[in-house]
Computed example of a mutant assay.
Amino acid sequence: MDISVVVPLYNEDESLPELIAWIDDVMQKHNFSYEAIFIDDGSTDRSWQVITELKLRFASIRAIKFRRNYGKSAALNVGFAAAQGDVVITMDADLQDSPDEIPALYSRIKDEGYDVISGWKKKRYDPITKTIPTKLFNAATRKMSGIQLNDFNCGLKAYRHDVIKTIEVYGEMHRYIPVLAKWAGFSKIGEQVVEHRARKYGVTKFGLSRFINGFLDLMSIFFVGKFGKRPMHFFGSLGVLSFFLGIIMAIYIMVEKQVHIWNNLPYRNSTDQPLFYLALVAIVVGSQMFLAGFVAELVGRNAPERNQYLIEKEIN
């Protein structure tokens, strides 16, 4: 099969007939064999009923319905597990992503050898309350990941089959899939300008809380990707640094007091100095962080996946 189109959706019953008809038209024109996988993320409208009716007209439709709303990342993860196509394309169900982009995205993966192609909605129709935070997140993600993409959060993306079968998407990590792919060893990641269409039906399903959750997930990706198999390098380094900083401050306090005694100068008790308490906190925190790294290392060494590594090729 050439293409799997994975479409997560939540309360999008009005747009679904137009979307699948548009996808099918594009596929027929370019002679692609395809499947359209709709993941109903616990919709409370007629979305599932509409999908069931559309299945009678379009045999390429496959669908999965959650019992409740789990979020876009969960929907994509389930969709990726079900996808069978050589190239997997994701798009939103609200018609703001154009299926006409599919052939070009497919070509970038199949013909040019990319692992991931991320869409870039260069001209957007979103309100400023959404575009400004998005720009900030894109800048932060570029800085932390080293991946030079302008629009990490674009729902229109294309993936090589191996990529979606390797990564796991959860939390709010759907916007950071290129980062997950890079940490998994898929380094050929590109970008393509795509059309962003104004919303035709309904309202956006995302609130401001997604930006907070997205930032926390970005920190999780960065930490797990860099230190997941060697937590002692992170906690131990910070712990040792904090511990010795505390020791240096404590030595300074003692030396200063002794110098005042030798020269018959007035001096304060050690416990009367703020530096004493800073030194104490630094020593305690340093010890705790070192122990946390030690415990994390023990847990990691006993984890069943501690020696699982992604192998691209092998010759026997």
Rank of each mutant, 00 (worst) to 15 (best):
M232G: 07
D41N: 14
N69K: 13
F290T: 02
A75K: 13
A82I: 12
L218R: 01
D162G: 07
I251S: 15
I37M: 02
I89K: 03
Y176G: 03
L278M: 11
V224R: 13
S33G: 14
A292L: 14
G214A: 07
F32S: 01
K65D: 04
A36R: 05
Y10D: 06
W262Y: 15
P266M: 07
Y125M: 09
H174T: 05
Y114P: 00
R68D: 13
D24A: 11
K182Y: 11
D97L: 07
D92Q: 00
G146E: 06
A83I: 06
N77L: 00
W120R: 03
L298P: 01
C154G: 07
I51A: 00
D86Y: 05
L275M: 15
G190L: 03
D40L: 08
Y70G: 06
T166N: 08
S73W: 05
V194P: 00
G202N: 07
R67F: 15
Q192E: 11
E12V: 08
F152W: 06
P17N: 02
K110A: 09
Q258G: 10
A184P: 02
G119P: 03
R160S: 10
K110R: 13
F211N: 04
I20D: 02
R301E: 04
T204Y: 13
L208F: 14
D41L: 10
K226F: 12
A83H: 09
N138H: 14
R306F: 15
Y70P: 02
F137G: 02
A63F: 04
D2M: 11
I212F: 14
R67T: 14
R230L: 09
V179G: 08
V7C: 06
S60G: 14
F66R: 12
F244Y: 14
D92T: 05
V7T: 05
D25A: 15
I311D: 00
V88T: 12
D115Q: 02
M1D: 12
V7W: 08
Y170L: 03
L310S: 11
I132P: 02
L275A: 14
I212R: 13
V194S: 01
I177D: 06
L245Q: 05
V203H: 11
G190S: 05
T52I: 05
R210N: 12
I39W: 00
D111M: 03
D217I: 02
D41A: 07
E168K: 09
I283L: 07
K135G: 10
K226D: 12
E256C: 04
L280A: 05
Q49L: 01
A140I: 11
T134C: 11
I311Y: 10
V116T: 03
V6Q: 03
V285T: 09
K226P: 07
